[in-house]
Design a protein around this nucleic acid. Structure first.
Length: 453
RNA sequence: GGGCCGUUAGCUCAGCUGGUAGAGCAGGGGACUCUUAAUCCCAAGGUCGAAGGUUCGAAUCCUUCACGGCCCA
């Protein structure tokens, strides 16, 4: 059987449905329209066959009178192209009354249960095409994610940012605390790392005078998998010359709200059974104050460890103060940050790229922002002084899993980086918030799984 | 890495204190010109995740492993 190579001049299901809805029950339009899609239901009635046709835009009943179309010999899951007229059945169902029907692709496997769809999580992830085919919500969520990504680009482009591409394969990794994936370049005979962040390259472009840059793409972190972690994930980072972290706070809360309005039509979302409003201004909370509320703010490692143990926290994995304070924050503060919250002014010891405040507090101009008890991103007034950056790298290298340092980056700073506000935003997590999905695997088309045995 | 739960037909699920593996949908054959989880009739469909063990007898009990999920780290 030779199948057609093309099916031109196709209309969308949603458009034909709108035409059909304007008709009276029993009426058929004189117009001719063409549709193509997947047959996902069949209700045979002798020489009259009702099929449900699904394309990306929606679902519509098509009505095949075999005295008009000839014999309809189809299985569920076949892809067909049809020509016919918008119509409404006597019962009032919007339909397309078909004149001609051609098979465009044959389904050779039984389709999953057409009523329950595919619910087995493993099948949904490993055979995402079945999930997309059978589950309308899945299709809607991934289309939402696509609109989210283009809305972010549109917002940043409109604000005068230029989108750039920096290396995924890097001789040094940096810009975040994370273990990298390592690979090898044969010709250069050198190990390379898959980037854990785009930060250090983007700031080189600020030194280079591009003024407002962003990059939206994959980062890779060789760490655990959880409801909010996938080893490869999508992040947008932007850097804005002549701005500080206060400017950046306003920019991110406005951007997230604008994006939500664009893709959802509202800033109100429901996540983990909480109604949340993404509209600015977001709540501001000092990092130190957030820990003081739990009587967990101290810069003394032994003291902090003792206080954590009193609260039955297992600190055996924490090797120094930076890890302890991070543990304290993520255990006691982060889960409580449901409404959008900006946590600001972090200790310098855990912030190697942020500029110090002028008040001698040992805190830096850095904020992280949280929604639904989950970190969405991280931002600073960038540290521009090359000597201090070199000193921070040295300090960080002495810490457990700290930054390894990047002399080329320090050299770039020596040429003078303008005052700069920079930010990272986790796209997958924002997609979780906007779709209400509680697992990152439900907003990544092909999430990381073990190889099937 | 640890704890708990799950894995039975293509899919969604039953299967009791161990006693001959079931249903619905899908797929096959047939009837039916307004159905919409269409309906009706017929036939078919299984390495019960894998490997061991206990037992006269294991989908069921035990052990190990694999994969997935949730929680903790």
């Amino acid at each position: 059987m030779t199948l057609p190579r093309r099916f031109p001049d196709r209309d969308e299901v949603v458009a034909v449905r709108a035409d059909a809805e304007r008709l009276e029950p029993g009426e058929e339009s004189a117009e001719k329209r063409r549709l193509a899609g997947r047959v996902l239901a069949r209700r045979g009635h002798g020489k009259l066959v009702f099929l449900d046709l699904v394309d990306r835009s929606g679902r519509l009943q098509i009505l095949c009178d075999e005295s008009r179309t000839g014999t309809v010999d189809l299985d569920l899951g076949d892809v067909v192209g049809v020509t016919g007229s918008p119509a409404r059945t006597r019962r009032g169902e919007p339909s397309l009354a078909v004149d001609a029907l051609e098979l465009l692709a044959k389904n050779r496997r039984p389709l999953p249960d057409t009523f329950h769809g595919v619910t087995d999580t493993e099948t949904r992830y490993r055979q995402r095409y079945l999930d997309l085919l059978m589950n309308e919500e899945t299709r809607a969520d991934f289309l939402l994610r696509t609109r989210l990504v283009s809305a972010i680009r549109r917002q940043l482009d409109a604000a005068g940012f230029v989108e750039v591409e920096t290396p995924v394969l890097q001789p040094r990794y940096g810009g975040a605390f994370a273990r990298p994936f390592v690979t090898h370049h044969n010709e250069l005979d050198t190990d390379l790392y898959l980037r854990i962040a785009t930060e250090l390259y983007l700031k080189r472009l600020i030194v280079g005078g591009l003024e407002r840059v962003y990059e939206l793409g994959k980062d890779f972190r060789n760490e655990g998998v959880s409801f909010k972690h996938n080893p490869e994930f999508t992040m947008v980072e932007w850097y804005e010359a002549y701005a500080d972290y206060e400017d950046t706070m306003v920019r991110v809360e406005e951007l997230v709200a604008a994006v939500a309005r664009e893709v959802l039509g509202t800033t109100e979302v429901e996540f983990r059974a909480h109604r949340l409003d993404l509209a600015p201004p977001w709540r501001r909370l000092g990092f130190v104050e957030s820990l003081e509320e739990h009587r967990l703010w101290t810069r003394d490692a032994e003291d902090l460890e003792r206080r954590l143990r009193e609260r039955d926290v297992d600190t055996r994995q924490d090797r120094d103060w930076p890890q302890l304070v991070d543990h304290a924050f993520s255990h006691f503060v982060e889960p409580s940050l449901l409404e959008p919250t900006i946590v600001r002014d972090y200790p310098v010891e855990i912030s190697p790229f942020a500029r110090l405040r002028d008040d001698g507090s040992g805190l830096v101009e850095r904020f992280e922002y949280f929604v639904g008890g989950m970190e969405l991103g991280n931002a600073f007034t960038e540290l521009a002084d090359p000597d201090e950056q070199a000193a921070r790298f040295a300090q960080s290298a002495a810490q457990a899993d700290g930054e390894q340092g990047d002399p080329d980056y320090v050299e770039a700073l020596a040429y003078g980086m303008p005052p700069t506000g920079g930010l990272g935003l986790g796209i997958d997590r924002l997609a979780m918030i906007l779709t209400g999905r509680e697992s990152i695997r439900d907003v990544i088309l092909f999430p990381a799984l073990r190889e099937r045995p």
